[in-house]
Structures are given as C-alpha cells and as structure tokens.
Amino acid sequence: MEKLIGYVVLALELYRYVLIARVLMSWVPDVERTSFGRILYKVTEPYLSIFRRIVPPLPLGGGYIDLSPIVAIFAWLFVQSGVVMVLKWLIS
C-alpha cells in the first residue's frame, strides 16, 4: 500500500511539472503550435480553464497578465497534500 501512495505522489508531481511547463511555454510564442505544445495544451487546459473563469486577468500597461496559472499551481499543491494525507489516513 505504501507503493500506491508513492505512485499517486509521483503522478501528482508529474502533473504539477506539466503545469509549470505549460506556463513557461506560454512565454515563447510559437511553441504552442508544436506537437509537444498541443499535447501540453490538451492535458492542462481542462484544469487551467477552471481558474481562468475565477481569476480575472489584471490590466498591465497596454495588455493583461493572467495570474490564473499561479493560483492553479498553488491549488494543485493543496490538492496533492490533501490526497496524500487522506491516503495515509486510509492505510493506517
């Protein structure tokens, strides 16, 4: 059962890194058009879109800055902690 927790933690960690990669990818204009960019988009957009509906973009000069990915990553950390605590509680 300890291995199960390890696998769950690994999967949650990997998804967090995928989210971070998606955020970094948004800073480079043409990367989203590559096959790697499209895969990252398909994997992360369902989760990130939840936060885009909640957190409005902030006006910055002539454009906007989207803070929803930052909020989404922090929320993911809380989800990860909660899932691990619940799994450990269920095992003990």
Rank of each mutant, 00 (worst) to 15 (best):
V28S: 01
A21L: 12
P29W: 12
G63W: 10
R52L: 10
V43R: 01
V83S: 01
V71Q: 08
L60D: 03
G6V: 13
F36R: 04
L77H: 05
V55D: 06
K42M: 01
F51C: 11
A72E: 11
W89M: 15
K88C: 11
V83T: 10
V86G: 00
S81R: 15
K88Y: 05
V55C: 08
F36G: 11
K42G: 01
G63A: 12
T34C: 03
K42I: 00
L87P: 06
I5D: 03
A75S: 13
L77V: 12
E32Y: 13
I39W: 12
S49Q: 08
L48T: 01
M85A: 15
L12Q: 04
K42L: 07
V86M: 12
K3M: 14
Y7L: 15
A72R: 10
L12P: 00
S68I: 07
G82Y: 12
M1W: 14
V31Q: 01
L67W: 02
D30P: 04
S26C: 00
W27D: 04
I73L: 13
G37D: 03
L87M: 14
S26V: 01
F74E: 11
G61P: 05
A75T: 15
T34Q: 06
S68H: 06
F36I: 14
V18L: 13
V84W: 03
S35L: 14
V71Y: 08
V55Y: 06
L24Y: 05
W76H: 15
V84K: 09
V84N: 08
L90E: 09
I20C: 03
I70Q: 00
D66P: 07
W76G: 14
E32C: 11
L87C: 06
L19S: 09
R52D: 08
S26T: 10
S68Q: 02
R33W: 13
K42F: 05
D66M: 09
Q80N: 13
S49I: 11
S81C: 00
I91V: 14
L40E: 04
S49T: 13
A72L: 11
L60G: 07
A21T: 10
F51T: 06
Q80W: 09
V23F: 03
R52H: 13
S81A: 15
A11D: 09
P57G: 03
Q80A: 12
L19Y: 01
T44S: 14
I91A: 07
L19R: 00
Y41S: 11
W89E: 09
I65K: 04
V31W: 06
V55I: 15
R16M: 12
Y41E: 11
Y41M: 09
I65L: 11
L48A: 08
L12S: 03
I54K: 03
I5L: 06
L77E: 12
L87F: 09
A21F: 07
W76E: 09
V23L: 08
L24I: 14
G62Y: 13
V55H: 04
L60N: 04
S68L: 07
V71N: 00
I73Q: 10
L10G: 12
